[in-house]
Design a protein around this nucleic acid. Structure first.
Length: 927
RNA sequence: GGGGAAGUGGCGGAAUUGGCAGACGCGCAUGACUUAGGAUCAUGUGCCUCCGGGCGUGUGGGUUCGAGUCCCACCUUCCCCA
């Protein structure tokens, strides 16, 4: 028997599969299609274990679907535009394209080592002109259909990156990528009408996506129902507000405008001008998060102006305050301090009137003077003129009788209108960067905008660019790029903003269909067959970004007619295109994250002199935990944290000691030869994300070199609940190593020679055991892979292998049934460990390729045990077990249970109150 | 503060969805084979035990013949949003 050498068989089969175009997916209307997709990576440089965790189980499932008779498309590509490339350009003077394509080349090689069934002929790279030509074309199409527009907006501006960021890219007031602060700035930018499809995107009825993702998208879209109401200033200027609680209008005792509100200039009185100006400047320097933080003391300034409350003609003061955002609603609110906590705090802070307009039934009448918090519960309307007495409940929108009544009243009096508002803002697509898809627009000589003609697409990024350390986009000072002739023959200026990279990744699954197609973004012949994506896998962190953008994009494509030809072809093939383009991905599953493993810190003893409670150590030695010499004088324990030469040492009782290792101190680490220093001391690591700085990164290339890709794949699928992820355990991989090597041995020992004559076994019992184990395994593995429970699918295979191992010394080997059992074992293994399965398949004389064989069918009849164990319970506690024929009748089971000795002794002569029988499971005797 | 997910042996994790808790694997223990063992093989392994049994799925209650699973309250961790 040869040894199992993955380093030989894996490249061998990878090359063979590639040469044979085994995974080439082609349109075939006679076969059912399955479009499996996993999120495309950003070419950051090296493939890490997270990529493996995302891609190889998805591959296993795609392979499984293929064996089940589907024509499977499983493509891969790169989301290749983006800031890291540009940062590399600025810092290391490498052109972004060079950096990007070198990384892609490297990652392609690494990806090939996974043994995935990627159809590389479908590869798409978003930074290729032949790809971004169509990204530009989409922009243009959306522009021409009113879905893209130029607008003035308060934007997140990153001074470090010199670019605008989308809200999703700003975390806690800082840029998500660099962690640098982001400021608010008014700018003219390109937007997509994101809210156009807000309502449609709230409908998830066509898609099978995880509940948490749907919920996050729902919250992100943030639909609310209420009213828009027009207030007027004393001078007659209109101030429009949006409120979800129009039933509290009578309690609006002041108004608050966002500091950036355009009306602030007009209404501010001379006397207040200085204070208002100062406040506006201060607000501009703060981030939205800082401004809306709930525990913050409320700040604000009176403008000196007054507005008239349209429902009761009261003159109410107009303030500005930073807790009102110009970007949300209308940038102005009516303040109802009695029934809104933020307004309440503001009113108390500045001693403004509080008028209750909802009175709860079981409380003393509310008094604005003495209330210590706003009241937000149900009750009935008061102080609201003719609407007094209207009941108020906890419902939102029209379901609340008070809101319904006020809405009608407002519309009748023409004071306000029923309105829906979204938290979702329009999608800001402008980026002041070089390494992104150009926006194909021209600023004409006359100041108007016009789109670049189709024939001139794509607008390509110039190669000869110089990156300045200011971070400013080189497009803004590249004369050759900037100067352009508009359609009237005048000199215009090219748009220098490029697109958000989420634009590129919103449609890549269409480009995969025909990456070289030049007449349209995708070949409708391909699209008609493959669309939509059947299974999409990727990380949940994209819930409100990529996964929402791509849903929007599909609808925008649909409504701009991009799918018309595709629909025609579908009809020609008898497929109904109705609804086929509404949702881009029918099923979504998220994988979890592989985290770093927990690592104990070195256990040390340290000696030196004490400076207060701090030990100035002259000598530090790593020892076995707890092996502290008797009478030791100094500090000992596990190193929990180390910062430079300062150690936090925990002796085990949680009382941390601080040890400062002196410059000339001696450090002794027995495990590490030679002279040691303080930097080699290892600190305790919690389970957390892998990162280079924490030193807990698992490198897949090294694992593949040591164990082979099949083992790494199988371990990633076996060790975690795939949808949850978890800490990496370097020990655990041994289990998978043993499994594969056991299979290897088992196959060679019992089935390697295809010419061996089959003998009939005399022992029918063993044959039945083999068949039963086989069908049980087929059923479990099938279900496991189908439901993304890869760990149980592999557990079932291990169990099956264990059973076969136990029988390998019996007469059953070399029988037809045994050979079938071995072949089935390999077929079940094929999606998980494609190389070793192929190798062994060949060695047992199977037809090439194992990956083109049909998935075995599990027969529940053959899987069923003929004898089963029935549990006998008394009052729900297990007291005895019976072995009975599987088809035992209820009466006999009960009878046998009652006859059991243990039961009799427990009954002690009494008659049971009730006997419950669960078919094939248990008898429960109630006494 | 709001919303969501989760909490099961020393560890990763199973449990036909209300029916034998702990599949499978790691680790550990004992033994075998070995010049050696971070290899391999065999057996065992939830906890306690007076060896009768008792207790066990974060805590406390509830529903049920029966609860890891359903309901209520609480605690802890993680994620999303403010």
């Amino acid at each position: 028997m040869q040894d199992y050498k993955p380093e030989e068989i894996e490249p061998k089969w990878q090359n063979r599969w590639e040469a044979d175009k085994l995974y080439r997916a082609e349109v075939d209307w006679d076969r059912p299609k399955h479009y499996a997709l996993t999120m495309l990576p950003y070419p950051s440089g090296d493939l890490h274990i997270g990529h493996w965790f995302a891609m190889t189980p998805s591959d296993a499932r795609a392979r499984f679907m293929r064996m089940r008779g589907y024509n499977v498309l499983f493509p891969m590509g790169f989301d290749a535009f983006g800031l890291p490339a540009e940062n590399a350009a600025i810092q290391r003077n490498i052109h972004p394209a060079k950096w990007t394509y070198a990384n892609i080349e490297r990652m392609r090689t690494q990806m090939r080592s996974m043994g995935n069934m990627f159809d590389w002929e479908r590869e798409a790279v978003s930074s290729d002109p032949k790809y971004y030509k169509w990204t530009e074309w989409f922009f243009k199409t959306f522009y021409e259909n009113g879905l893209a527009f130029r607008g003035e907006a308060m934007v997140n501006w990153s001074p470090t990156l010199q670019t605008v960021l989308a809200n999703e890219q700003v975390i806690d007031g800082k840029d998500e990528r660099t962690g640098q602060p982001v400021i608010q700035k008014m700018m003219t930018q390109w937007f997509f009408r994101y809210t156009r499809y807000a309502d449609e995107m709230l409908d998830f009825s066509r898609i099978d996506w995880p509940e948490p993702i749907k919920l996050m998208q729902e919250n992100w879209i943030g639909r609310s129902e209420g009213a828009r109401v027009i207030f007027h200033t004393e001078d007659g200027d209109e101030i429009e507000i949006y409120t979800t609680r129009p039933d509290t209008l009578w309690g609006a005792t002041f108004m608050v405008l966002a500091p950036e509100h355009p009306l602030v200039e007009t209404i501010t009185t001379k006397k207040q001008k200085k204070a208002v100006q100062a406040y506006r400047e201060q607000a501009a320097s703060m981030t939205e998060i800082e401004r809306t933080g709930e525990n913050r003391e409320k700040t604000g300034v009176f403008t000196g102006g007054y507005a008239i409350n349209p429902v009761n003609e009261e003159h109410i003061p107009i303030w500005i305050a930073d807790y009102v955002m110009i970007t949300y609603g209308t940038g102005a609110i009516m303040a109802v301090p009695a029934h809104d906590q933020r307004d309440f705090e503001f009113a108390r802070q500045f001693d403004l009137t509080i008028t209750p307009v909802i009175q709860p039934a079981d409380m003393d009448p509310l008094d604005g003077e003495t209330m210590d918090a706003s009241y937000v519960g149900p009750g009935e309307m008061i102080n609201s003129g003719m609407l007094d007495g209207t009941p108020v409940n906890n419902e939102k929108g029209r379901k609340n009788p008070s809101i319904a009544k006020v809405l009608d009243w407002l519309e009748e009096k023409e004071i306000g209108k029923e309105a829906v508002n979204y938290r979702l803002r329009d999608w800001l697509v402008s980026r002041q960067r070089y390494w992104g898809c150009p926006i194909p627009m021209i600023h004409r000589a006359d100041g108007e905008m016009e789109a670049v003609p189709d024939a001139e697409l794509p607008v390509t990024l110039p190669d000869d660019v110089e990156f300045k350390p200011t971070g400013q986009s080189p497009l803004t000072y590249h004369e050759g790029f900037l100067n352009v002739t508009d359609s009237d023959g005048n000199t215009g200026r090219r748009e220098t903003d490029t697109m958000d990279t989420f634009m590129c990744s919103s449609w890549y699954h269409y480009r995969y269909l025909s990456p070289d197609y030049d007449a349209a973004p995708f070949d409708p012949e391909e699209a008609a067959y493959w669309l939509p994506v059947d299974v999409y896998t990727g990380g949940a962190e994209h819930a409100t970004m990529h996964l929402l953008y791509t849903r929007w994009f599909a609808r925008a494509m649909r409504d701009t007619g991009v799918f018309e030809e595709t629909a025609e072809i579908m009809r020609a093939h008898g497929r109904d295109p109705e609804g086929a383009f509404d949702e881009p991905m029918l099923m979504l599953r998220n994988q979890g994250q592989v985290l770093g493993s927990e690592q104990a810190g070195d256990y040390v003893i340290a000696q030196g002199s004490f400076d207060g409670s701090r030990l100035l150590a002259e000598h530090v030695k790593v020892i076995e935990p707890g092996a502290v010499p008797a009478g030791f004088d100094g500090v000992f324990g596990e190193i929990i944290r180390r910062t430079e030469s300062i150690l936090h040492v925990d002796p085990g009782d949680g009382n941390m000691s601080i040890v400062e290792v002196q410059e000339n101190a001696t450090v002794e680490i027995p495990e590490i030869e030679g002279e040691n220093d303080v930097n080699q001391l290892r600190q305790h690591l919690e389970i957390q994300r892998m990162s280079k700085s924490k030193g807990n990164v698992v490198n897949p290339d090294e694992l593949v070199a040591e164990y082979g890709a099949d083992t790494v794949r199988a371990y990633l699928m076996f060790a975690f609940d795939w949808q949850k992820g978890g800490p990496w355990d370097p020990q655990g991989i041994k289990g998978v190593v043993r499994w594969i090597s056991d299979v290897w041995t088992l196959v060679h020992e019992t089935a390697a020679d295809p010419t061996t004559d089959h003998v009939e076994t005399q022992n029918i019992k063993e044959v039945i055991s083999v068949q039963r184990a086989m069908h049980q395994a087929i059923i479990k593995v099938t279900k496991g892979i189908e439901t993304f429970s890869f760990n149980t699918a592999i557990a079932a295979q291990m169990e099956y292998k264990n059973t076969l191992q136990k029988l390998k010394n019996s007469t059953v080997i070399y029988t037809t049934e045994w050979r079938e059992a071995i072949r089935t074992m390999l077929l079940l293994m094929a999606p998980v460990a494609p190389h070793v399965a192929e190798e062994l398949w060949e060695r047992v004389g199977g037809d090439y390729s194992i990956h083109q064989q049909a998935w075995p069918e599990g027969d529940p009849q053959l899987a069923a045990e003929d004898e089963i164990t029935i549990v006998v319970q008394i009052n729900g506690k297990v007291r005895d077990k019976l072995t009975v024929p599987a088809d035992v009748s209820e009466d006999i089971a009960k009878e046998q249970a009652l006859a059991s000795e243990t039961v009799q002794s427990h009954l002690d002569g009494t008659t049971p109150k009730k006997v419950i029988y669960v078919k094939g499971r248990l008898v429960n005797i109630v006494v």
